[in-house]
Amino acid sequence: MDFRVIILAISTITVGLVELIVGGILPIIADDLNVSIGTAGQLISVYALVFAIAGPVLLSLTVKIERKKLYLYTMAVFFVGNIMTFFSPTFTFVMIARVITSMSAALLIVLSLTITARIVDAPRRAKALGYIVMGISSSLVLGVPLGILITNAFGWRSVFLGIAVLSIGSFILIFFYLEKVPSGEVQPLSAQIKALANKKIVFAHLATMFMLAGHYTVYAYLTPFLETNFSLNQYWISICYFLFGIAAVGGGALGGNLANWIGSKKSILIIIGAFALVLFILPYSTFSFTVFIVILMFWGTLSWALSPPQQDYIIQTDPASSDIHQSLNNSALQIGIAVGSGIGGFVLGQTDSVTSTATVGGVVVIIAFICAVISLSIGRSKMKHVKETSVDYQ
């Protein structure tokens, strides 16, 4: 694999850690800053909301800037945001720092995807994107246990100091090993608005959103699911999260390799369909912890396998607007996380059965499958701006 792609994947791990790493240490943060746990939880929800909005907006505003230069500038802002968090005296100051890190992280992740798509030949593009997704998924799923470990040893502020140090390493690697990447053709605002009206890609974004929503309907409440069905202690719950995380990291590579093998379109349908099936099976696997672990690993693998073929499909469908759509797809992912967590909480409140979240999650994923089918069935868009501003990613 191209060493430049590995560097970008490493950067996404560093950047992605910031989002959910506070999840397992919220009570400690809340106690230190003299706020309630519910208030401290806004550090996650506000981050996701800002991330979803900032990605497409910042990408559009910075379209004329050479990509490597933009990446380095944005990484510097990301570093400042984490240093601010480390020194924050109040909750308000922490929230401001989180907004800064969220905005910079949103741009850095979409830049990692779009730069990868440009520097890698088309036949290997989906596989390369899979490595970037591995970086994103590994940071999201392994961030929580890592945050707990570091906090127990050095305190919660050291988590953000550590991320700041890692960002310096990423900055150095990008500076020395990534060549300049042209910004590409600059599309007029009217063309970008037309790109947002492309129904074929809109339904692809909806597929991503509902896929992650179905996933987080269950995953956001995995701890009570494990406690209710198996009466596990914190040690075994941590092991389950770790196994899920390892499987999820491999899912990005699986999705990329599958897309290279059978094509992105078939991969999208197979992954979403299999994911829905696994969620429906999940409640019936609890009769045996061993069987459940096997299903858990399948669940984890499929949870992040969609993104590489989906990103490749977006590039194929509308090359001229693929940068903005890759950013929007990441926004759809963030919205899906928020929506899924909300759905799971509602189901739990209405049924008082955490096991039922898996069935509801499966239904939500079926909606994602329908959206994917609709997207694939719509004829290739003949929008005029695609012909006029087509970008060669090879």
Rank of each mutant, 00 (worst) to 15 (best):
D32L: 02
S327H: 06
K265T: 05
P283R: 10
R118C: 09
Y216G: 01
I150A: 06
V57K: 00
L59M: 00
V159D: 08
G147A: 09
T217F: 05
S238H: 10
A253I: 09
N233G: 13
S390V: 15
D312G: 05
S102F: 09
I174V: 03
L206C: 06
L226C: 05
F86Y: 02
L348Y: 04
I132H: 10
L269E: 07
Q311F: 03
V80S: 10
M75S: 09
I100F: 01
N34A: 15
Y177W: 11
G245H: 01
L49K: 04
H205R: 13
P319F: 02
A338M: 14
I262V: 14
Q334N: 14
A220I: 09
N82F: 07
A207C: 08
H325R: 03
L328Q: 10
M209H: 10
L196C: 11
P182W: 02
I270N: 10
I262E: 05
T389R: 15
L376I: 04
L282H: 13
Q316E: 08
I168C: 08
G362F: 07
S45N: 12
D352T: 15
I335E: 04
L254A: 05
K194G: 14
V18H: 13
F298R: 06
S377I: 12
T355Y: 13
R118A: 04
F225I: 09
G344I: 02
C371L: 04
E388G: 12
H325K: 07
A358I: 06
A372N: 12
G250K: 06
F93E: 14
S381L: 03
S36V: 07
W304Y: 08
P319Q: 04
N34M: 12
S303H: 01
Q310C: 10
I201Q: 09
I272R: 07
F93T: 13
V35F: 01
S356L: 14
F225M: 01
S137K: 00
G16R: 08
M103K: 02
T351V: 06
T357S: 05
P188C: 11
I335S: 11
F210L: 00
I7N: 06
I262G: 12
F203S: 03
M211C: 13
G336Q: 11
L178N: 06
L43N: 11
D31N: 15
I174N: 05
A128K: 05
I295A: 00
F87A: 11
M134V: 09
K127T: 15
V373S: 07
K127F: 15
P319I: 06
A54R: 09
S267L: 00
T92E: 15
C371E: 00
G16L: 06
L166R: 00
E179C: 13
N34F: 15
L348F: 11
A320N: 03
D318V: 09
V133K: 14
K387P: 11
L33K: 09
G255P: 00
G55P: 13
R118F: 10
G362C: 00
D352R: 15
L129W: 05
D392T: 03
N330W: 12
D352V: 14
